[in-house]
């Protein structure tokens, strides 16, 4: 319920001037005689303090006494424009959560540059990949944040957005400054379709994505097969500068396509199945 309420209220439109305007008003109040508000006996310390109301002063002491100044929502510019997208991601999270994780094999079939490739992974760790009628065995077929992962490792990821962010952060290599958000968005969105993340983990990935400030909502769109969805985009600055757009089906939270400046990758199938691996 709280999540719905937060989603309803969204982020107020950014108003960069508000802080300074309010500061100026307080400053004005300060120069008015204090007696206008309430008669107070003169007090040497108070006189000095009133004079310094909004002037830089001994500010550090309070910060030490009240260290709980953590989340400052206004430190995330751009929030205002991502609110609509956030609600869609949160709704997708809900759908993802109710998804099933039954079936003997994880199966992904995707199309890229006119070529269809497939990946199968069994719960016991065996995996096959291939294209054009041939499958071959492969080990640790998944990759998250640049690391090879087994099915078991993907499945063991936390299903809570905060803890998932921490787990992904722990996998990341040392990154150049300013590149982390893009890499994080990429790692999280990869969990949504190309990996056998359990429903709870997919839901957490959607929620974590909704909380990233750098994921932009693009509105309604269609993928190159004409399937309708909604688009989200983010910039990657590492390992090379690029841009990725994800098209998701908001009805079921499935990812339909991933489009980069290098071309698009269409998800033809992604999910658990009892069918045997065959091309």
């Amino acid at each position: 319920m709280d999540e719905l309420i937060r989603d309803l209220y969204g982020e107020p439109a950014a108003d960069p001037g508000a802080r300074e305007r309010v500061r100026a008003r307080l400053e004005q109040e300060r120069v008015r005689p204090a007696a206008a508000h309430r008669a107070r006996p003169p007090h040497p310390a108070r006189r000095r303090l009133v004079g310094g109301l909004l002037l830089a002063g001994a500010g550090a002491a309070l910060a030490v006494a009240y260290p709980a100044l953590t989340s400052e929502p206004d430190s995330r510019p751009g929030q205002a424009v991502t609110v609509s997208g956030e609600s869609i991601l949160l709704a997708a999270a809900t759908r993802a959560e109710s998804g099933t994780a039954g079936g003997a094999f994880w199966h992904v079939k995707r199309q890229s540059a006119g070529r269809v490739t497939e990946l199968w992974a069994a719960r016991d760790g065996r995996a096959w990949s291939g294209a054009g009628g041939a499958l071959s065995r492969t080990d640790r077929p998944f990759s998250l944040a640049g690391r090879s992962m087994s099915l078991a490792e993907i499945q063991a990821l936390p299903d809570d957005p905060e803890r998932l962010l921490s787990a992904v952060t722990a996998l990341l290599p040392a990154l150049p400054e300013g590149t982390r958000d893009g890499v994080m968005a990429d790692a999280l969105s990869g969990l949504l379709w190309s990996k056998p993340a359990p429903p709870g983990v997919r839901a957490a990935a959607y929620r974590a994505l909704a909380g990233l400030g750098n994921v932009r909502y693009l509105g309604r769109t269609v993928d190159s097969l004409g399937r309708p969805g909604v688009g989200f985009a983010y910039d990657l600055r590492w390992p090379r500068a690029s841009h990725r757009e994800l098209i998701i089906d908001p009805d079921d939270g499935q990812v339909l396509a991933s489009v980069t400046d290098g071309g698009s990758e269409l998800v033809l199938e992604a999910g658990w199945t009892d069918r045997e691996p065959r091309p």
């Binding site: 209220y9 969204g10 982020e11 107020p12 439109a13 108003d15 508000a18 802080r19 309010v22 500061r23 307080l26 310390a45 108070r46 303090l49 310094g52 109301l53 909004l54 002037l55 830089a56 002063g57 001994a58 500010g59 550090a60 002491a61 309070l62 910060a63 006494a65 009240y66 100044l69 989340s71 400052e72 929502p73 206004d74 430190s75």
Partner: peptide, 30 residues
């Protein structure tokens, strides 16, 4: 500390208090 560093209080909390009030009342009255 509070009296001596009201500026620090303002700087630390303006953002979240403004956000909360603007959510509830809209930007004009906030």
């Amino acid at each position: 500390d509070l009296t001596a560093s009201f500026e620090a209080v303002f700087d630390a909390y303006f953002g979240e208090i403004h956000r909360y009030v603007a959510q509830r009342l809209g930007p004009d009255d906030a």
